[in-house]
Design a protein around this nucleic acid. Sequence first.
DNA 1: GGGTGATATGACTTCGGGGTAAGTTACCAC
DNA 2: GTGGTAACTTACCCCGAAGTCATATCACCC
Lengths: 217, 217
Amino acid sequence: MPSSTASAGSARRSGTKGVARADREEQIVEVAGQVFAERGFALASVSEIAERAGISKPLIYNYFGSKEGLLVACLRRGGQVLAEEMERTAALGEVGIARALVTLDGVFRVLEPQPWIWRLLNDPTLARTSEVAAIIDVYQDRVAALARDGVGELMHLAGDDDPVDIDAMTHVWSNVFDSLVTWWVDHPDETPASMTARSSRLFAAVFGADRVGLRGR
Amino acid sequence: MPSSTASAGSARRSGTKGVARADREEQIVEVAGQVFAERGFALASVSEIAERAGISKPLIYNYFGSKEGLLVACLRRGGQVLAEEMERTAALGEVGIARALVTLDGVFRVLEPQPWIWRLLNDPTLARTSEVAAIIDVYQDRVAALARDGVGELMHLAGDDDPVDIDAMTHVWSNVFDSLVTWWVDHPDETPASMTARSSRLFAAVFGADRVGLRGR
DNA sequence: GGGTGATATGACTTCGGGGTAAGTTACCAC
DNA sequence: GTGGTAACTTACCCCGAAGTCATATCACCC
């Protein structure tokens, strides 16, 4: 008869499975992140998340309060690891193309175990309520700042200081960054290292090899 | 009492408003395109479209059969005008950056009265059923071909003929094209001509002014 | 002026998704 | 053992959105 910690042989209707809340929450966030990224937040269903996690829907509501609460948990985890990594690469002190490259490299490495983070942070179906927006802004401001710096320098060198040109270029450049990450997310065989090398070759083809070298090389 | 063609003073429950089917269909497609682009197809509601068009929901179903049928009608109209325009600019025989510029210019001009077309054709919430996919592919293949040509040339000049590099670069370049269009869609004050000029300056800043000139200049 | 077909609509059904109430099982402290 | 609590589930409510049916009004033709 069922008495030890392991699950019993036959169907039990309810009752604990011996998983602590913190562990369960982490597992749910992991599954939810994947589902949100696959379908888009608005089109994802909590039922599917529960099913894929092997638990029931009310447990999710018990732990996270609402679908948006679950989203916030995913976003917080994802946003934090990304922000920390960008902080780290920013401290390396690279500039220009090299700065973009080390940032990309860091992002690739951080995203490798959880590629859903990037899709989720760029999910177009997100309703930007205040709490959600606050978390997203942390990382998006960072990407935008990175873009603005590099773009400002590039445009100034080209003799174009029109602020609207710079704004448009920043938008384009942010999308280039995003394109490289999404291409990589769609090609899981690629390692972070090989993807960074690939990005470097692409930059070299556009800007010329002489403008892409890392500092100190 | 109501007998002439114009609407009567007080509430009429049903009956014709004197709008021919073809005209009504065109009006519905126009409104639907805007709503689909705003919310994304999957998140848009037929009721809202009906409301904004000042008609009732069953009329839409009577004319288009289903929500997807309405989408197909929007896509067909949008895809056709874009494909025709790209056909036209392709016949101009420009190459390299200049080809991208005349294509962008054509797209800006065509999109000016209906900017929703671009968003709709790139809607990430679209369920790609066979009929929908067929229409989208017509235009997406065209953009991809445009990208592949230009990218192939650029990469070859840079001495990089790795096919995977070219594939990644094509993806990035398609996104650059898309970025310029979406930036413009978000800045409605900009005329097509000024946006083309702006794009030209941005290309010049990246590639160098000497590589951007149009043929015959 | 009366039938016919096109243009329209109110009221309905169905279904899936978010969210909840109430109960069930297992473990732990005493 | 027994009471409390943490970990769970079944069965339900509510709402909004897709899609349908029966009906109403109008224009036109004779």
